[in-house]
Write a protein that binds this DNA or RNA. Structure first.
Lengths: 244, 244
DNA sequence: GGCGTGATTTGACACTGGTCAATCCCACCC
DNA sequence: GGGTGGGATTGACCAGTGTCAAATCACGCC
């Protein structure tokens, strides 16, 4: 396993299939659709990379020639507006695929939230493999569809919910996502800042802070530390963001 | 071309490929990726249907066994919340594909806005064809990706823009979409009610009305009739929703 | 261990946009 | 032509959030 240094001091290395077989994200991401011998074709075109807090994998306008599998940490997808406002359109976690865009250029910026590990592929190579491996094609299609459904839920949260409801929906979403990738559903760990959350929910960061305080006052959550929130009553929280 | 009556008095009929060749939406939708002989395979599994104003193609929770190509009119995709609020997550126009969902059940409701014509396919048949026709697979993937990008733009509009900016962004979007399918980019025709627009933009319908009036006072638009809006200065409107 | 910077919390206040209500407009029907 | 009903507009008011400011906290670094 040779190791190199790429622009930006980022470690980047190729590896063999044995590494994929023990990858914690394998059953979550597109690789899970492949058998060992098929995985080898993927292994040949991938490099593993690490990004530090805030580092960009790509920015709005960059060529979409590279795509990624997230294997560790969290990635923030965002849009910047002319007036300096920022909308976070999604957070990606281990198992998520990063690279859907119908165009030659990315329309969003992807940055590591705190620190993240990813597998990097050339889109052209992956496209070639998709033609050879129908399982892979199918799995990627499913993942794109599921991203679309997630975006529609995000739209609904942004359009119809109050600040506190948004906050509750966000906490429940993180809890579900953590459980889905084999982690605990409680307490919820927040790798991102209050400002990231605010920009995801269309709020001011002060409002995020106030909503968390209010929910703790109501005993619905416990703020164990700035980045660890315990959900004290799932049923009540579900009701809170669905009905009110 | 035999004609039948289906539940709900809806006309539904099969047809041969000659009809597809003159379909106005063909170059916009997934059919555009196919040659005449390939189109025939599609023709064999499709039925053409008409839906009246407000009629549902499917509702949240319905089986996702059917998928559609929109060929005329407009379709409204929406989510209902427990408290009676509704979020419109998208409007579909001729050329758009309706049926992306990663699951066995639809998570949104699809209704005709005023009146709409669609081609209906069994998902299972279409999946089979996708395996046989790589062009079709590729085109559908592209369309799913482009829906995802559109949803991310919608998220940004909902999260970061003021009421009037939202309204301007909406008008420009409709104008672009009309141009993209070969229509005029000005004036903009609105098949939907103020309430539909409000539920799309996360506003009250009174606010939509007020914003339109305000934009007309500023000479940026002319309300030629309730459902026809003339954009008087594209550059100024672009600036309005991008910067302010 | 102390310091410094950035993140977070809390408070005071202003303002956008929601709510409720009245009126208007227009298409459709008798 | 007049009536009817749903959609659209306009006005008055105010609740929920954003903004600005200050205080506090947390963490990395020396």
């Amino acid at each position: 396993m040779k190791q190199e240094t790429k622009p930006g001091q980022r470690s980047s290395f190729a590896f063999d299939v044995s590494r994929c077989l023990v990858c914690g994200a394998r059953n979550l991401n597109m690789c899970g659709s492949l058998e060992k011998d098929e995985l080898e074709s993927l292994t040949k075109i991938v490099r593993c990379e690490t990004f530090g807090a805030g580092e960009a994998l790509f920015r709005e306008g960059d060529s979409s020639a590279w795509v990624f599998n997230v294997t560790d940490g969290a990635i923030r997808l965002s849009n910047m507006l002319g007036n300096g406002k920022r909308q976070v359109v999604g957070f990606l976690f281990p198992g998520d695929f990063l690279g859907f865009t119908g165009a030659d250029e990315y329309k969003v910026t992807a940055e590591a939230v705190r620190g993240a590990k990813v597998c990097r592929f050339a889109r052209s190579e992956l496209t070639r493999l998709r033609h050879q491996l129908p399982q892979l094609e199918h799995r990627l299609f499913e993942m794109a569809e599921s991203d679309l459904v997630a975006a529609q839920e995000h739209i609904t949260i942004l359009g119809q919910k109050s600040a506190t409801e948004k906050m509750v929906a966000f906490l429940l979403m993180l809890s579900r996502k953590s459980a889905a990738r084999g982690g605990v559903d409680n307490p919820v760990h927040l790798p991102m800042t209050r400002e990231d959350i605010a920009d995801f929910l269309g709020l001011a960061f002060e409002t995020v802070s106030r909503c968390l305080t209010k929910l703790e006052d109501q005993k619905l959550i416990t703020i164990e530390s700035t980045r660890v929130i315990r959900l004290n009553d799932f049923a009540a929280l579900e009701d809170y963001c669905e009905e009110a």
